[in-house]
Write a protein that binds this DNA or RNA. Structure first.
Lengths: 245, 245
DNA sequence: CAAGAACGTTTCATATGATAATTATGACTC
DNA sequence: GAGTCATAATTATCATATGAAACGTTCTTG
């Protein structure tokens, strides 16, 4: 690019994240996910450090974090290699964000909602059995925000997130609760896609039905209502793909 | 070993894992999960290194991996602190294993099966729509092994795992596929609990129903059959707990 | 006396250089 | 041609020094 120059301008180093290590984590993570090291050779520890203008310590720590997330594996002499996508931890918010950001994959979005359609109805059902007052209050708040959003007084996306996260939390099941972050991340990252869908998705009435079912301790109604909500999203997504398989 | 010696025996240092870093990862991870640092102070980077007889580099890398898994967070001057369990990544095989090994929590086992009851029926349903021949073959293999296990020719647990993993894989949804490792880990680790349950759970007939539904492309039947299987497990687990909430 | 600025301490963050451990590769032997 | 072994490349580990950030303390000052 920069037409001239024999003098190499310092790489912008890394900047995202709260410090060099986390910045590098983000940078390399994104690069791996976008396929920049297409199963080919991954740079050596020393090269990687040089390329990004950081020390080997920082590089090693970033690589170790990516290893923990399942994206890399390293062995002496063999080098550091990118793992097959099947071993990436998709339930890690970072990994999921990188994947959703890379190309706005509608496939991934569909698959993610296939997960939601399994999990969230069950979470709603559980919530109807075990939710406490605080939980219901949080769900109410989410619902209120959705209503406010309808009149333009709140962000529809954030309101929707607040509602669904509140339900997950109310289930008191740590596995579901864990998905809070993943769901938030995914919904926020895939705005561009969901925007057009949103108008119809933000079906406040159906959300209210979920809320009422939980408040009145009716697990089955809660499950069905939630399934309707996410099933609708799924249908809208699938409609945009002529043929999948 | 070497019986003698006034010479201070080196701390067993760390041994699990393929090297010091991964050994330390395992050691600290287990310690955190068993609550050895009960929200109290976590040792300083230097202390931690000293205690385990390794260098600070190794310590830092292990801590960084635990950070990536959501168990720790570190800031200058404040120190390294254990994160609330709600931010631990339960979908990480290491974390889940540590948690299941710590005390065989029947609560966790129930919650895990609450996840399965949401996910696996949906995976079976998806599989009925998109499974290929290879997938069906793998499912068949799992089923055969279960039948063999009934006559004592195979390990019932491994056969069961093989079947459920095959179904997850057949769904072709990376989120479900990802759960393979988690499901395997959880089932293997919780043997002691499930053993007594197993006799009745290894309901080959019901598993065969799932297989047939998938092979004949009937998503709804597949979903329902799978839900029956896991629902039964859940009932058995809940029966062992008089009152939960 | 109180408010705020300067300073110091503690802890993680980063950099660097040296050495050990591991193992893929190719040379070598038979 | 098959098996064995030396070599070299790469990560793993160690040690030490320095930087940066966060928090408390003290000192100044109105």
């Amino acid at each position: 690019m920069a037409g001239s120059s024999h003098l190499i301008v310092d790489e912008p180093v890394v900047q995202l994240g709260r410090n060099l290590t986390f910045g590098l984590l983000d940078s390399i993570g994104r690069a791996i996910v976008t396929g920049q090291f297409g199963s080919a050779v991954f740079p050596t520890e020393a090269e990687l450090a040089k390329q990004h203008g950081v020390s080997r310590s920082v590089t090693r720590e970033a690589v170790k974090m990516l290893t923990a997330k399942g994206l890399l594996s390293a062995r002496p002499r063999q080098g550091t290699i990118v793992q097959p996508t099947s071993s990436w931890n998709l339930f890690d918010a970072d990994v999921l964000r990188w994947m959703l950001e890379r190309q706005l994959s509608i496939d991934l979005l569909r698959q993610f909602n296939e997960l939601r359609v399994a999990v969230e109805p069950e979470a709603a059902s559980l919530a109807a059995r075990v939710a406490g007052e605080d939980d219901i209050r949080r769900i109410d708040e989410g619902l209120c925000r959705m209503q406010a959003a309808e009149c333009g007084f709140d962000d529809p996306l954030e309101a929707d997130i607040a509602f669904h996260v509140a339900v997950l939390r109310a289930s008191k099941n740590p596995f579901y609760i864990q998905l809070r972050e993943v769901v938030s991340t995914a919904l926020r990252t895939s705005i561009r896609f969901t925007n057009r869908i949103k108008g119809r998705t933000a079906d406040v009435a159906e959300h209210a039905k979920v809320r009422d079912a939980i408040a009145s301790r009716d697990p089955d109604v809660a499950r069905i209502a939630m399934r309707t909500i996410i099933g609708d999203v799924l249908v809208l997504i699938e409609d945009r793909i002529p043929s999948i398989e």
